[in-house]
Computed example of a mutant assay.
Amino acid sequence: MQRLRPSTEGTGEDRGQVGIGTLIVFIAMVLVAAIAAGVLINTAGFLQSSAQATGQQSSDSTTNRIQVVGITGDHFTDNSEIGVVDIVVRRAPGAGNVDLDKTTVQWIGPSGSYYQLAAGGADGNPDGRFAISTVQDNDGSQPVLNDVEDRFRITLDLGTDNSVGAEPFGEELPEGETATLRITSPAGGMTTEEVVAPKTLSGESSVTL
């Protein structure tokens, strides 16, 4: 007589095999979730750092600006043109320290657009170089504006005068003509001023622009 082997279907042995498979799948899911969480945390940290850096740069470019106190012109030519422009500057309210040696000046006048760097300052190939002198500087920080009371003079040499310590560029500014001055701090803060020459320079040694 043939003996039939008792069926194990639905017994505890089957349940044990199913339980081990489920456990393996569960562990795998936990590992995948942990790895994904780590990637998300690292990505979030990177994005946060990038956002903070971008926000700081935007803040610096807005607040770390140079404020123009006054602009004058002198060194008139025989053709009644202004040969030298002096710009007295200070730190804008709320700005941090501003290094004029790393500042860029753009002059847009009747004869064209010219970029200037400080004489002896940052390396580059500008159209000319402006000179820096002290008007007021209690702690000897020139060329860095590090105090609200600091006042420095930026001197631009238009044409070929070459006698004020600056490197000449472009052409002199004629009577009645207008130019645009853009001063950009190392942090990217830009100050724009319009320079207007008087309609007559006759009898003057220096004029306010």
Results as ranks from 00 to 15, higher is better:
residue 105 V to L: 08
residue 106 Q to T: 15
residue 106 Q to I: 15
residue 106 Q to S: 09
residue 107 W to E: 03
residue 107 W to Y: 11
residue 107 W to S: 02
residue 107 W to N: 01
residue 108 I to Y: 05
residue 108 I to C: 00
residue 108 I to M: 08
residue 108 I to N: 11
residue 109 G to A: 05
residue 109 G to Y: 08
residue 109 G to I: 00
residue 109 G to K: 03
residue 109 G to R: 04
residue 109 G to C: 07
residue 110 P to A: 06
residue 110 P to W: 02
residue 110 P to I: 09
residue 111 S to Q: 02
residue 111 S to R: 00
residue 111 S to A: 13
residue 111 S to V: 00
residue 112 G to S: 04
residue 112 G to A: 09
residue 112 G to E: 08
residue 112 G to P: 06
residue 112 G to I: 07
residue 113 S to E: 14
residue 113 S to W: 00
residue 114 Y to C: 07
residue 114 Y to S: 06
residue 114 Y to V: 07
residue 115 Y to N: 13
residue 115 Y to D: 10
residue 116 Q to M: 10
residue 116 Q to G: 11
residue 116 Q to S: 07
residue 116 Q to C: 04
residue 117 L to F: 14
residue 117 L to I: 10
residue 117 L to Y: 14
residue 118 A to L: 04
residue 118 A to I: 03
residue 118 A to M: 10
residue 119 A to F: 05
residue 119 A to N: 12
residue 120 G to L: 15
residue 120 G to H: 14
residue 120 G to R: 15
residue 121 G to P: 04
residue 122 A to R: 07
residue 122 A to C: 02
residue 122 A to E: 09
residue 122 A to H: 01
residue 123 D to G: 14
residue 123 D to I: 11
residue 123 D to N: 13
residue 124 G to P: 05
residue 124 G to Q: 08
residue 124 G to L: 04
residue 124 G to F: 01
residue 124 G to S: 04
residue 125 N to P: 03
residue 125 N to W: 00
residue 125 N to M: 08
residue 126 P to H: 01
residue 126 P to M: 06
residue 127 D to V: 04
residue 128 G to W: 03
residue 128 G to V: 10
residue 128 G to I: 02
residue 129 R to A: 10
residue 129 R to W: 05
residue 129 R to T: 07
residue 129 R to D: 11
residue 130 F to I: 15
residue 130 F to M: 14
residue 130 F to H: 10
residue 130 F to C: 13
residue 130 F to E: 09
residue 131 A to L: 05
residue 131 A to G: 02
residue 131 A to S: 11
residue 132 I to Y: 12
residue 132 I to P: 13
residue 133 S to G: 11
residue 133 S to H: 08
residue 133 S to I: 00
residue 133 S to M: 01
residue 133 S to W: 10
residue 134 T to R: 15
residue 134 T to C: 10
residue 134 T to Q: 15
residue 134 T to E: 15
residue 135 V to G: 07
residue 135 V to S: 10
residue 135 V to P: 06
residue 136 Q to S: 15
residue 137 D to P: 11
residue 137 D to Y: 11
residue 137 D to F: 05
residue 137 D to N: 14
residue 137 D to G: 12
residue 137 D to T: 12
residue 138 N to G: 02
residue 138 N to W: 00
residue 139 D to V: 11
residue 139 D to R: 03
residue 140 G to D: 12
residue 140 G to T: 01
residue 141 S to Y: 02
residue 141 S to K: 10
residue 142 Q to H: 04
residue 142 Q to V: 14
residue 142 Q to G: 02
residue 142 Q to N: 10
residue 142 Q to T: 10
residue 143 P to Q: 13
residue 143 P to T: 15
residue 143 P to G: 08
residue 144 V to W: 01
residue 145 L to Y: 01
residue 145 L to F: 00
residue 145 L to E: 01
